[in-house]
């Protein structure tokens, strides 16, 4: 039954996007169709994102910029608020369950949030054609990353580096599946800090959150267990995206008619998605997400190059 529901949701998602794309070329469409279509689309994005274990805004920005008539400036501004709201509502539970560590979040967030200001300023300065081309390349690369990246549940690590020891980064959490407590630490923190500067710039520039990059860096480079990597990434976004979101807000690049339905739609959808996740086998959803990212990424690339 759940598989049928997921199949229906995917069909509905495609149908909605096609309808929206057709409406985008029709000047006579009543204004209220757009916020409603946006609410429906983001609700479905929220479901798909939760089932696939990705952040909503990585799907939001390329899909909405491909199918809706809004300017990319406003979509990126909304994307940051989408990521911010999702992170703020999910982080408390993760922090209280010790699936996120503030001692790890704080140093990474400091560099990522400072860098995201640079990214936001770059994003608001560059011509749209260049931004769309870069966004297309980025989204296509993320799709390829999703195909090939293999996360590790509990990675093996070497001795924690001097900085990680000095900052006393590490902790423990209860693993329900095994009935064991898992203690963890990290290594290669300096390299991680450098990468988080780059992640911050990309997040601010394209408004796509950064969970897609945070998790592999935390898990595969720093050696944090996957659950800690996901929880810490989600808690990090609340801070990283705040700085960039303020730049977009101060610049006037946040239109409530786009941002509010998007935030509400994704938050409602992700809650439904999390409920479906308890019984669904979401592997096929991951492939759908990869296909959607490839499609949206290539469309953005072609638009940016003027071939769309």
């Amino acid at each position: 039954m759940i598989e049928n529901l997921i199949a229906h949701a995917s069909t509905l998602f495609t149908t909605t996007n096609v309808a929206v794309a057709q409406a985008a070329g029709t000047p006579g469409v009543p204004w209220w169709v757009w916020p409603l279509a946006l609410l429906a689309t983001t609700f479905l994005i929220g479901i798909v994102a939760a089932l696939a274990g990705v952040g909503g805004s990585v799907l939001y920005v390329p899909i909405v910029s491909s199918f809706f008539p809004f300017n990319l400036d406003f979509i990126r501004g909304s994307g940051l608020f989408v990521a911010l709201a999702c992170s703020l509502s999910a982080a408390p539970k993760l922090l209280k369950s010790n699936f996120a560590s503030l001692r790890l979040v704080i140093p990474l967030a400091l560099l990522a949030s400072a860098s995201s200001i640079i990214g936001a300023l770059l994003g608001l300065s560059l011509p749209q054609s260049i931004l769309k081309t870069l966004l297309g390349l980025l989204i296509t690369s993320i799709a390829i990353l999703f195909i090939f990246s293999k996360n590790s549940e509990i990675p093996k690590i070497g001795h924690p580096d001097a900085l990680a020891r000095y900052l006393n980064i590490g902790g423990a959490y209860f693993e329900t599946s095994s009935g064991k407590d898992v203690t963890w630490s990290v290594w290669r923190l300096p390299q991680g800090l450098i990468l988080f500067c780059g992640i911050g710039i990309i997040a601010g520039m394209f408004g796509i959150g950064a969970g897609w990059a945070n998790v592999p860096v935390l898990n595969l480079l720093l050696g944090a267990p996957l659950k800690i990597a996901v929880g810490t990434s989600m808690s990090l976004l609340a801070i990283t995206d705040t700085s960039a979101a303020w730049i977009y807000l101060n610049q006037g690049a946040v239109l409530p008619i786009i941002t509010v339905p998007s935030v509400l739609g994704i938050m409602a959808g992700s809650r439904v998605g999390v409920k479906l996740l308890r019984t669904a086998k979401p592997k096929s959803i991951r492939y759908i997400v990869i296909l959607m990212l490839l499609f949206a990424g290539l469309k953005s690339l072609l638009d940016g190059l003027g071939w769309g």
């Binding site: 709201a85 703020l88 560590s101 902790g171 407590d181 509010v260």
Partner: peptide
């Protein structure tokens, strides 16, 4: 381990602030 499994008080307070304030913001929105 159980000593460190316990969530630190500052992390708990931070989580509570995020929880209350984020939902307030969303309701106002």
């Amino acid at each position: 381990v159980q000593a460190s499994v316990e969530v630190s008080s500052e992390q708990n307070t931070y989580a509570n602030i995020l929880l209350v304030c984020s939902w307030t913001g969303i309701a106002v929105m």
